[in-house]
Structure formats: structure tokens, C-alpha cells
């Protein structure tokens, strides 16, 4: 069973609804009590960076996320991905650090900020999660901070474009971050969450 991490401000219900429709069992947890060490986690996210880090710490998730085995399946969505990364210009706090990307603000002189709406992906690297997906994909994004692409980082599975190329999917071990919202990306989101949960558990 998948544990959906509830920070009190995220769209946890949307994630659970989509998993339920896929026949994947998932429960929402406000804190890590009663969760097994190898249980797959989804960290959804709506909100600001420091508020997210504060909530992770206050609810006891930060130690769990920092100490988890690299093979444990963890999926961060939108802000959840950013919290799993190194840092963000949005906040003062450091991220969890399971992913390697740092996040920067889009340049409002160059593009409309937030980057809001449907965008395609450029797949950078083959990976079982991405291989299971259709060639033409599009997902719903809504974010003001983007993961800067490090060309030497092989963990970047896909990028998207909004004025510049940014990290859309990153994977290190079994920690995966997606900048878009699969839970709101209808058939493409269903395909993505199915691919991830096939790998993660069931």
C-alpha cells in the first residue's frame, strides 16, 4: 500500500482519487506513525517552500525522508519534488537532498510566471518509468520555480520548456520527482501514475 504524505496544505485527495481509480491502494498519513520502512511514499505539494519544509519537520517526515534507503520508492510531485531537491530560491531552508536539483525563479521579464498549463516533455534518458508511457505526452504544470538542468546529471529523465529548458522528471535510485501534476493530467497522468506504481509496489 502506498502512503500519501499529508502536509496539511496539499492536494492529497486528488492523488488518492487517481490511485483508487487505477485500483492501487493508498492511504493518507499526517505523520509517519505505523508506516513500514519500505512502504512507497508519495509527497504531493501545493504551497511555498519553507512552509513545506516546516511541515515535513514538524510532522516527523523529514527524518524518514532523509534516512530512507535509496531503494525505497518515493515520488515527489510539484512542490514535493522541489522539497526532495537541494534548495530553492523561494525559501531559506535547505531541501531534503534526495534529489540533486536546485530550483530558481522563472524570469518574469522573459515569460509569464507562474508557468501554468499544459506542456510536453522531452525525454532525456531511457528509464522503465518513462518507457511505459506514450511517445506524445502532455502534463499540467503550475509553478513559479524551475529545476535548473545540470547537463552532467544523468538522473534527469525528462525536461520541459518555458523560456528555458528545465527539469521535469528526475530520478536518483528510487526517488523520483515530477514537476507536473500527474493527478490532474487525465489520461497522461493515469499512465504516469500507473507506470510508477507498477514499479513501486503492486
Amino acid at each position: 500500500m502506498i502512503a500519501v504524505v499529508d502536509l496539511g496544505m496539499s492536494n492529497v485527495a486528488s492523488v488518492r482519487n487517481m490511485l483508487a481509480r487505477l485500483g492501487v491502494s493508498a492511504n493518507i498519513f499526517g505523520n509517519p506513525e505505523g508506516i513500514a520502512d519500505d512502504q512507497p511514499l508519495i509527497l504531493p505539494g501545493v504551497g511555498t517552500y519553507d512552509e513545506g519544509m516546516d511541515q515535513l519537520e514538524r510532522r516527523g517526515w523529514l527524518d524518514v525522508l532523509k534516512g530512507a534507503d535509496p531503494e525505497r520508492h518515493i515520488l515527489g510531485i510539484c512542490l514535493g519534488m522541489q522539497l526532495l531537491g537541494r534548495s530553492s530560491e523561494e525559501g531559506q531552508r535547505l531541501g531534503v537532498g534526495r534529489l540533486r536539483t536546485s530550483f530558481h525563479r522563472f524570469d518574469a521579464d522573459a515569460v509569464k510566471v507562474p508557468h501554468m498549463g499544459w506542456n510536453g516533455l522531452d525525454v532525456s534518458r531511457r528509464d522503465p518509468i518513462m518507457d511505459a508511457l506514450p511517445v506524445e505526452q502532455r502534463y499540467y504544470f503550475t509553478h513559479s520555480y524551475y529545476g535548473r538542468r545540470d547537463l552532467n546529471h544523468v538522473g534527469v529523465l525528462a525536461t520541459a520548456h518555458h523560456g528555458l529548458e528545465f527539469v521535469a522528471v528526475e530520478r536518483i535510485g528510487n526517488t523520483v520527482g515530477v514537476q507536473f501534476h500527474p493527478e490532474k493530467s487525465h489520461r497522461f497522468g493515469f499512465a504516469f501514475l500507473k507506470s510508477w506504481s507498477d514499479l513501486a509496489c503492486c
Binding site: M9, L79, S144
Partner: peptide, 8 residues
């Protein structure tokens, strides 16, 4: 915006 972020 301070809690939820402008993007939502």
C-alpha cells in the same frame, strides 16, 4: 499567496 504560493 504566502501559504499556498501564487501558482495556486
Amino acid at each position: 499567496a504566502a501559504v499556498g504560493g501564487s501558482q495556486s
